[in-house]
Amino acid sequence: MNPPTNTASPALTNGSGAAALLSAGIGSFALAALAIAGDKSALIKSHLIFYRPTGPLSGVTTTAILLWLVTWAILEVRWQKKSVALGRISAIALILLILSIALAFPPIADLF
């Protein structure tokens, strides 16, 4: 016999949570992808130097953070009052996060 649970109908729609989740995955992936792009192309690398003492890391992180926050704001506006297909969205967000951590690992990043 399963133990009793206290789950009830959610008071809030899942759209806002889904927006935060997916945008975090996108922001993380953007950071890893930009780091690889900057490492492989001298032109991109030079454009990513926003603050010279920190080098391209300043542009990689600033651009990824802006992309994350803008994506989050757009998705929040569109989804905050909706119920969305959270299974698919959370799977995409988690895949993006795992890919980001893997792509940030230098031996994997060097494969590109």
Partner: peptide, 22 residues
Amino acid sequence: VFIKYGRDLKNHRQLRSAVLTF
């Protein structure tokens, strides 16, 4: 997500799992 949903998160199983994974 936690501040927004609070204890209601327990009613969003997939969201809860994803938040814990993150």
